[in-house]
């Protein structure tokens, strides 16, 4: 099937991530968004997830850079995925617009990746990670774009961020508190952060990570595996 094949388009689900099915009736790839402030380690988390999962899953990444393609190029340079699995979306200096208010460019990127892999000998994708450009604490993904979202903060950004809350911290399906190895140096109170996060998030999970440690991404990877298991199990 060629990407331009006119027959597939009208049946495609065109304006929402809600349908879990591909045009051919099979289940589409799970879409997970990663957001969070600048420098908290979103790209590093994406890279670590790809390295950790690429043997067992067919993964693609969409980056939403603010004014460069640096995140995409970081992933390329570090060869976490081959280039055909990485797409950069340009956001016109408004990364939160591209993942929330006007998701059209990201949806095009998602569907293009799905279409390319579905029609290739490699076979369909299992997981698409959509990384937001670094933005503020209110930047969250539209449910029209992703099935679940991870919000990445770090201890160096201030241990009061979980207490302050905000849509990312409060509602993300997984809150990642990264760079725990730096806690002693910046005087961050990890236990306090965990308490504050629980107060804000109730039962929603929080993962503390140090990506510099051996298999530091493990808590996030395990959560992603859990999401995928739930995604691929047909609803009763």
């Amino acid at each position: 099937m060629h990407l331009d094949h006119p027959d597939v388009y009208p049946h495609r689900h065109t304006y929402s991530a809600a349908s879990p099915l591909r045009p051919d009736g099979r289940r589409r790839a799970l879409r997970i968004g990663l957001g969070g402030p600048v420098g908290s380690g979103k790209t590093a988390t994406v890279a670590a997830l790809c390295r950790s999962l690429r043997e067992e899953l067919s993964i693609a990444v969409i980056t939403n850079d603010i004014y460069t393609r640096e995140d995409a190029e970081f992933l390329l340079r570090n060869a976490v995925l081959p280039p055909e699995r990485i797409t950069a979306v340009e956001t016109g200096a408004c990364p939160h617009t591209a993942i929330r208010d006007d998701i059209s460019a990201n949806l095009e990127a998602v569907e293009d990746l799905e279409a390319v892999f579905s029609s290739s000998s490699v076979g369909p994708l299992d997981l698409i990670l959509v990384e937001s450009g670094g933005d503020n604490l209110t930047a969250t993904f539209s449910k029209g774009l992703v099935d679940a979202q991870i919000f990445v903060i770090d201890v160096a950004g201030g241990d009061d961020i979980p207490r302050k809350g905000g849509p990312g911290v409060t509602t993300a399906d997984l809150l990642v508190v990264n760079k725990t190895d730096l806690a002693p140096y910046v005087g961050a109170d990890l236990e306090g952060m965990a308490r504050d996060a629980e107060a804000q998030r109730g039962d929603l999970p929080v993962a503390f990570t140090s990506l510099t440690a051996e298999d530091g991404v493990a808590p996030v990877r395990d959560w992603v595996r859990g999401q995928l298991a739930a995604w691929t199990t047909p609803a009763a």
Binding site: G92, C94, T97, D101, D102
Partner: peptide, 11 residues
């Protein structure tokens, strides 16, 4: 301007 058709990313 908020019609979600991608215009915000173009100058």
């Amino acid at each position: 301007g908020r019609f979600p058709a991608g215009g915000h990313a173009h100058s």
